[in-house]
Amino acid sequence: MAKLERYHSKKFKEITSRALIYIILIILSIVWLVPFIYLLLQSFTESYDPTNIIPEVWTFQNYINLFTDPIYPFGRWYLNTLIIAIITAVLQTIITLMTAYAFSRLRFKTRQAYMKLILVIGMFPSFLGMIVTYFLLQMIGLSGSIFGLVVVYCAGAGMGYYVAKGFFDTIPRSLDEAAMIDGANKNTVFWKVILPLSKPIVVYTVLMSFTAPWGDYMMASYLAQGKQELFNVAVGLQQMMSKGRDIQYFPQFCAGGVFVSIGIMALFFWLQRYYVEGVTGGAVKG
C-alpha cells in the first residue's frame, strides 16, 4: 500500500509540475505576443487613443497613407532598405565567408596576429570614426546615395567572421586533403568542396546580413544627414515618432512596423532551421 501511495504522490508531483510549466509558458506567450497584437490592432485604427486597445472603427487608411503621405515617404524608405539589404546580403556573405575560410583553413604567419587585431578593433565603439567615414565616402562620391551604406556595411564584413569560422572548423580537414591529392588547388577546394557542404552557414550569413540593414539606426541616420530620401525604414519610422507628432502618426507608424515585420518574419520562418543552427553553433564556438 505504502508503495502505491508513494507512486501516486510521485505522479501527482509530476502532474502539478507539468501544469505549472504550462501555466508559465502560456503567461510568457501572452507577455511576448500582446505587444505585437497591439501593434497589429493599432495599425487598423483611425486615430490613436490610449484607452482603446481594439479599434472602434476598422480602416485600411493607415496602410494607404504610408505610401501617399507627402511628409513621410515610407515607400521610398522601404525601397531604399530593400536595395541596400539585397546588395549587402550578397557582398557581405561573400566577404565574411572568405575571411572565415582563410582564418579557419589556411595557415599563414600573420594569422593569429590578424585575428587578434580584429578582436581589438572590435572593442572600440563602432561609430567612433563615423565623421571620417562620412568624409571618405564624400571623397569617392557616395555620401549622397544609399550605396554609401552598402560600402560601409561591406567594409566591416570581415570583422564578423566568428560564426562562419566556427562552422568551417567542424568540417574535417581530410576532405580538403583528399581533394588536393586529386589535383585541386585551394581555390577549387573552397568553391567546390567547402561551400557546398556549408549550406546552413551560407544561408545563416545571408539571412543575418539581409536583416541587419533593416534595423540599423546609428550608421544610417548619420550618413543620411537628415535627408529624407536617404533614410532607411528604421531612421524613417524613428523620425515619424519624434518631433512631437508621435500621437498623430502612431497608427501610421504601426502600419509601417507591421509592413516591415511581415516580410522579415516570413523570411525567418522559411529559413528557421538554418537560423537556429547558426545561433546555436555561433554561441558554442564564439
Partner: peptide, 25 residues
C-alpha cells in the same frame, strides 16, 4: 599564398573604413 587572395578585400575594407577612422579619432 591563397590567404592573400581571400583576405585582400576584407583587409582593404577594414583598413580604409575602420582602421584609418579609428586612428584618426
Amino acid at each position: 599564398d591563397y590567404h592573400k587572395v581571400m583576405l585582400s578585400i576584407p583587409t582593404l575594407g577594414i583598413a580604409i573604413f575602420t582602421i584609418i577612422p579609428l586612428f584618426f579619432m
